[in-house]
Design a protein around this nucleic acid. Structure first.
Lengths: 218, 218
DNA sequence: TCACCCAGTTGTGTCGACAGTCTTCAGGTG
DNA sequence: CACCTGAAGACTGTCGACACAACTGGGTGA
């Protein structure tokens, strides 16, 4: 007789948060849509206060922003903001690259990054899972730096990144292609700080332009 | 007859948030202290729900973190986290420096930064106002980059920075001295990217060590 | 003596209700 | 016809109460 699976101890607030975040990131709510507390609480089957807390959390994540009379709306990013966002990402991941290369665990790190590369390649192009794998690669890079504050800062940007990606109706496969990411890992393996940073920078700039352009013609 | 001053339209939640943040950052609550919803709501004279929302906000700011049974406690940082924090700051402000130097408004920026420098010097050493002015200088640097996402990312770190500073019982005046910051502005004025970044990096490293050491012997 | 059980206390989690505000629109008034 | 006025509707802001889980301390039986 197998042991019982441990019970789900998450609070309603957490589950509501996940549900709302998922609904927004899956495109169920489009940028500009109004998220009413009453409507959401009835459809989720929880009280308004619980929904409210989840919405406030999403607000701090940057997925929704307050409009007139405190009413929350799904956020969207201007092309300029998209470019700015990827600049910040480049700065953060640049630090990550420097740290990874300078760390004694560089070998193990490259191995882990190559595995993440495989997981990207294993997903269908244009699928949400591929986006997830792509972001997971970059997050792993941050984690491998061993800098927990860096990881936190990056994760706080994640919501907005997903908004930017989501707004790009036409998701171009080349953006997640192996040859975009592999050179980064290669440079890390060789211990080439300048090279890794340059490749990363180029990747971010290209991505920024791609998503910024998509945001220009809604 | 002069026009009436516009009324304060802030919500109770915002005021509770400010009050709690101020209480923590002024040292009224020390790291590790338990922040009970009931206690706070009675002393602030608002309902638990309102306090609750403010606490959740502080949680996302990194000022408090959940302990056993979801009870919130005032956060403290380990020396390692302090060093990591300042590394991230260096990366972000490094980007800011690059952007400011590359922007056409570089002259106006240096003027503004020098004014901020004056405001630091105008405050008494070892005073909270001086810490405020110091942080304002760095925030201004980020703002002048024109990158709103950078500003946001920096501000999300601000809470934790203040925790780190607060934990350093002995605030050493040299940390906010003019000769710590002036070289940064000088290098920006000269358009010396590498120099500005190096000075900034040194400033951050020195600050990190200072605050990390203070955190080591509580 | 020690393990166990059982209130009592102290927290947070969640809810439903009331209050206040802004918008909208119909209707009256000059 | 333009404008002011009032009522209705749709929101969010705020509150108090109940439910529930975890720790605490003392009593009980072997």
């Amino acid at each position: 007789m197998e042991p019982l699976a441990s019970l789900d101890r998450s609070t309603l607030r957490e589950r509501a948060l996940d549900a709302l975040r998922g609904a927004i990131l899956s495109g169920q709510y489009r940028p500009g849509d109004h998220l009413g507390e009453v409507e959401l609480s009835t459809s989720l089957g929880v009280s308004r206060g619980t929904v409210r807390e989840a919405l406030r959390h999403l607000q701090q994540e940057g997925l929704v922003s307050p409009g007139a009379r405190g009413m929350l709306r799904v956020n969207s990013l201007t092309p300029a903001e998209v470019r700015e966002l990827f600049q910040v990402r480049a700065a953060l991941e640049g630090l990550a690259v420097r740290e990874v290369i300078g760390s004694p665990r560089r070998e193990a790190a490259t191995t882990a990054l190559r595995e993440a590369l495989e997981r990207i390649a294993a997903e269908d192009e244009d699928s949400p899972a591929r986006i997830q794998a792509d972001l997971a690669f970059h997050l792993l890079l941050c984690r491998l730096s061993g800098n927990s504050m860096l990881v936190e800062a990056w994760q706080r940007l994640e919501g907005r990144m997903r908004v930017a990606i989501l707004n790009a109706a036409a998701w171009q496969a080349p953006m997640t292609a192996r040859d975009r990411h592999a050179p980064i890992v290669d440079a890390i393996e060789r211990g080439n700080v300048a090279g890794a940073q340059r490749v990363l920078e180029e990747h971010m700039t290209a991505a920024a332009e791609h998503f910024a352009e998509s945001a220009e013609q809604p």
